[in-house]
Design a protein around this nucleic acid. Structure first.
Length: 366
DNA sequence: GATTGTTTATGGCCCG
DNA sequence: CGGGCCATAAACAATC
């Protein structure tokens, strides 16, 4: 007899769409991505309703995965063989659900054809947000890095583009799709600084749901770089590449995540592209996917190690940081005017620090 | 052969 | 009533 799920709705159909259920499963996973079979497992474990008629709903769920742009496919690493790809949430899909409740979607997450010029705007906004994130690392940074970050922040603030520290109103998502080549992302730095085109024709800046720091690859697992982070890097000047690497490494140590700077990452990819014909290409052009292991080497580890050798970060400056994030249970809790769930008494919601309305970052053991 | 992924089609519900 | 969102069915291809 299966034990009752902790968020059991007994045998009633839960008030969540397949998109919401899938997003929950992915968000609850350690790496923010899951193979199809694990998405099934999560749903069946949490919601007894879905232990029946599996053929029916699983077909629907697969349809949703393919059909909706909010889900992206990530190829398996060679050292993790198995059937099917991993599924992740699109980096910009993090704010699909109001208050992270999974009950109501703001609107369909849909990619559009893109006006090239929007990118500069978006990149700049991203850059500002990223700098803010970077500054939060202040206590852990080398003096030089901290100073340089503050300079960048000041520059952003005085550019007239967006007052630093100002939080834009509800985001209006600009179209942002573009040809997804390595050169598009890391090329032409000189053209990619803070924007001059403020003629009002562009969409307002977007507040991004994720993107803790500039040029980082961390949020969606070790081999999926959010599109936003690449834009962020693109908006920075090339001589800040070292700063980015430094931040990536520090951020990785502070959070315990696998973090690699985008520049190291892309340089690896580009050199591999030149030497090898068969790279795993992104399945959708919205998030770059690749392998962690290139030519038998762990690129991530190599990058971090080389940084450490060059910078000798003293370990005592890297202090553990309390984990951010919601429990799955708190996210599953419906709003007061909706379907009333049955939650076991001992499964109290422990998360009181509910400040990340747009950020779905869940850290739950699997 | 089973699983995974893509695509098309259809109909219900809700909202402006 | 039309459009958006969603659920479901089903045909079919690709992959392990």
């Amino acid at each position: 007899m299966p034990r009752p799920g902790r968020n059991t709705y007994s045998d009633q159909k839960p008030p969540y769409s397949y998109i919401a259920l899938t997003a929950m499963a992915i968000s609850a996973s350690r790496e923010k991505m899951l193979p199809l079979s694990d998405i099934y497992k999560f749903i069946m474990d949490k919601f007894p309703f879905y232990r029946q008629n599996t053929q029916r709903w699983q077909n629907s769920l697969r349809h949703n995965l393919s059909f909706n742009d909010c889900f992206i496919k990530i190829p398996r690493r060679p050292d993790r063989p198995g059937k099917g790809s991993y599924w992740a949430l699109h980096p910009y899909a993090g704010d699909m659900f109001e208050n992270g409740s999974f009950l109501r979607r703001r609107k369909r997450f849909k990619l559009h054809q893109q006006r090239q010029r929007s990118l500069g705007m978006l990149a700049a906004q991203e850059d500002v947000n990223s700098l803010k994130g970077g500054l939060e690392l202040g206590p852990y940074l080398h003096d030089n890095d901290r100073v340089r970050l503050q300079q960048l922040a000041a520059s952003a603030a005085t550019s007239g583009y967006l007052p630093f520290g100002h939080s834009p109103p509800q985001p209006v998502r600009p179209p942002y799709k573009q040809a997804f080549t390595i050169d598009n992302i890391i090329g032409s730095h000189d053209k990619a600084c803070l924007p001059s085109d403020t003629d009002g024709l562009l969409s307002p800046p977007t507040r991004l749901p994720v993107s803790p720091l500039p040029g980082f690859a961390s949020q969606f697992g070790p081999h999926n770089i959010p599109h936003s982070l690449m834009l962020s890097y693109r908006a920075l000047r090339p001589n800040d590449a070292e700063l980015i690497s430094s931040l990536a490494s520090t951020y990785g140590q502070v959070t315990g995540h696998n973090v690699m700077s985008a520049i190291d990452y892309f340089n690896s990819i580009r050199s591999l592209q030149q030497s090898q014909a068969s790279l795993p290409l992104p399945v959708k052009p919205t998030a770059l996917t690749t392998m962690n292991f290139i030519n038998g080497q762990d690129v991530l580890a190599r990058s971090q190690q080389s940084y450490l050798e060059n910078h000798s970060v003293s370990a005592d400056r890297v202090k553990p940081k309390p984990a951010l994030g919601h429990s799955v249970d708190s996210l599953l809790k419906p709003t007061k005017d909706s379907f009333e769930p049955k939650i076991d008494d001992q499964e109290k919601v422990t998360d009181k620090n509910d400040t990340f309305a747009n950020s779905i970052e869940i850290d739950v053991g699997s």
